[in-house]
């Protein structure tokens, strides 16, 4: 009897280990109602201008997995640290054509496409791989919320607005699949694993 139990335990351990390994990344966020039907959370339509002056909508990103953050170049507080983590992610997936990085500015007045281009050049990154997008500020606040990032006008903050430093992973179906706290470098190794996992999932589905 005892033997049976331990045997069963052993099997269940095996099964549980295996299943955690193969569990797909979750789809993060509350379900939405579209035409009276409940669907998984997804990033709504957007249209921005990148550092090359080109228009970028979701369509251009449909074939990619992208890593997104919200920032502004003159931000003296958390943004440089978040950018440093984004740079680590960039370095890791630089040669993978399926991955793009997308940074949305919360300060389009000062972060014009020309300024963002200069910023990208100073970061030393490829203009087609890492998009720096500027658009209407209020729309970007709303879009940030869809990415579970808090951004708001804040009179107590030196630049008049504030935000949280999350880094997000979005799949080709516009679902947010993982996130990391961009202010915490310890969060990044797991996040890199999540990106690999998502890429594998897509590869398996394509077969």
């Amino acid at each position: 009897m005892n033997k049976y139990i331990s045997f069963l335990l052993l099997i269940s351990i095996f099964i549980s280990c295996k299943s955690t390994d193969n569990t797909p990344l979750p789809i993060i966020g509350k379900k939405k109602m579209v035409d009276g039907k409940e669907v998984d959370h997804f990033i709504p339509d957007f249209s921005y201008t990148d550092q090359n002056g080109k228009t970028v909508t979701n369509k251009q990103l449909d074939d990619y997995v992208y890593v997104a953050d919200f920032f502004y170049t003159f931000c003296p507080t958390i943004c440089p640290t978040v950018m440093k983590q984004m740079l680590t992610i960039y370095d890791e997936f630089e040669s993978n054509p399926k991955v793009k990085l997308v940074s949305f500015t919360l300060d389009p007045k000062r972060d014009t496409p020309e300024h963002l281009k200069q910023y990208a050049e100073n970061l030393g990154v490829d203009h087609d791989k890492w998009l720096f997008l500027s658009g209407e500020k209020d729309a970007t606040y709303d879009l940030a919320e869809e990415h579970f990032v808090v951004a708001y006008d804040d009179p107590d903050s030196p630049d008049g607005f504030n935000h949280s430093g999350k880094i997000l992973l979005v799949d080709q179906n516009r679902h947010v699949r993982a996130f990391a706290e961009g202010t915490d470098p310890d969060d990044i190794p797991d996040f890199l694993d999540d990106i690999r996992k998502l890429l594998k999932e897509i590869e398996t589905k394509a077969k």
Binding site: P76, T77, I78, P80, T81, M83, K84, L87, Y119, E121, N122, L123, G124
Partner: peptide, 15 residues
């Protein structure tokens, strides 16, 4: 450290 990073490595040619 917010700009030059906790370990002093900075951020490329930005900081």
């Amino acid at each position: 450290s917010s700009c030059h990073m906790a370990d002093g490595t900075g951020l490329k040619n930005v900081y």
